[in-house]
Nucleic acid binder design. Structure first.
Lengths: 249, 249
DNA sequence: CTATCGCAGACATCTGACATCTTGGGGCGC
DNA sequence: GCGCCCCAAGATGTCAGATGTCTGCGATAG
């Protein structure tokens, strides 16, 4: 029997699975991989494509919608369906936009990822950051001293770290970090935690990181970022653990 | 008409956008976020859900398919549609499988990400790895000495590093690394590069990493992994650059 | 008590049609 | 001749209805 089509557990759904739609996704994927549908390419109208793949338009639309969700295709109403630029950061950001649905139990894992990512990214940034970006960072630090609204403050803190990673000049790395960071940024979580005592030590640590970057000192940047994230992790953990016991079933 | 439905730019497709389907995706997302649809929960039949959201079944199916692709929903034919466990690694691996569609120009960025990720992950693994995992690593190293087929060898090398990251005990971190690593693992690229001279230094470096892990020495593990990835980067770069000039348009 | 059969429910898919938006060209006025 | 406006073609967006097929569980017979 050539195609017995047993069910491979349908692990994550994509690939060439048992359904017509999954198979269409796989076929479209292959045609993109092969270069037949290059980045920026406009693919045939839905009706034509559906005929080629031998399925109905609604089913094709499901496949296209799925690929659009993954950041691979870009459908423009009234115009056509196009292949995106397929830049890693686009695919990663599509991925990351769903990461904040993760269970709260994953928060510690996320923080641990930050602990791995940010020191390296900051060290990398120290070798490449330009003066304009440095001035911007200093500006953000100063602004954080004046802000009172916790939500605004968290946003600014996030932007501070995002700017640093962006200064590393690796957009893939940026997307990776933002995927993880965004997850820890749920306002509703932080709002209950943020108190006035945060500013005291975060400000100093931000200044340490800034100074290391200004000096283009990778090692110091690595150390400062590592300590900062580590302290944040401790701070969050000791405030979250008692809260978790209460919500335990 | 009550809902004027203006278009807010339709950023990357998801969220509550201009189309009925996008809005349905956003609404389902919110209901999952709010806890109304908890992990493992079975959501209403398509017909009922379509009625609730005030759209047709094909459109609802597009939304459901998109969320299934993102690893948020799990549709079982003949049974129903369920919310997955929403573990970060599931969400990451679901859309992460599309990362290898990224343009080849991103390969250097990917390697740089590995340079940031692997040392930290390896250092973390040094604090948590158990003896069984260590034995498994040694076994892989030995197996790599005997293998000849480049493809098999690359696969084994990948598994070696994946096992280390897995030993760090952070599944989110594992998925993150595998997203990046998998991208650099395109067999067609490596097959042209791998030569017999690879084994000499990779074997020694793998042994260094193994020794550091066995000693539970985080710092040594960090250093060894960093040097290994750095050397791989250099090795790839000096073999890829001349090849790139040739394929330049 | 167990194993098998059958039915109801749920997803899978198709056919066909209509609505709406984008785009580019033709007609009109200047 | 040049530029603006309008409209028609094409593409996606959405819907309705109908039928196939599989899963899971209860009923039934051994």
């Amino acid at each position: 029997m050539p195609t017995k089509r047993e069910r491979p557990g349908r692990g994550d759904g994509n690939g060439a699975g048992g359904s017509v739609v999954d198979e269409a996704i796989g076929r479209l994927r292959k045609r993109i991989e092969s270069g037949e549908f290059a980045p920026g390419h406009r693919l045939p109208p839905e009706a034509v494509l559906a005929a080629e793949l031998e399925l109905s338009r609604p089913s094709l639309r499901e496949a296209v919608r799925a690929l659009a969700m993954a950041g691979v295709l870009d459908v423009r109403r009234g115009d056509g369906t196009f292949v995106t630029d397929l830049h890693p950061e686009r695919l990663l950001s599509a991925l990351g936009s769903f990461l904040d649905l993760a269970q709260d139990t994953g928060l510690e894992e996320m923080l641990e990822c930050r602990k791995v990512l940010e020191p390296g990214a900051t060290a990398l940034a120290a070798t490449r950051i330009d003066d304009a970006a440095l001035d911007g960072l200093l500006e953000r630090i100063e602004r954080m001293r004046t802000l009172q609204d916790p939500e605004e403050l968290v946003r600014e803190d996030l932007a501070f770290h995002a700017d640093i990673v962006a200064a590393a000049g690796n957009r893939t790395l940026s997307s990776l970090v933002s995927s993880v960071t965004q997850r820890t940024a749920r306002a509703r979580i932080w709002r209950a935690l943020v108190k006035s005592d945060v500013l005291s030590w975060t400000h100093q640590q931000h200044m340490d990181i800034y100074a290391a970057l200004r000096a283009r000192d990778s090692l110091a940047a690595f150390t400062a970022a590592g300590r900062h994230v580590g302290d944040v992790e401790l701070w969050v953990r000791e405030r979250l653990d008692p809260l978790r016991e209460r919500t335990e079933r």
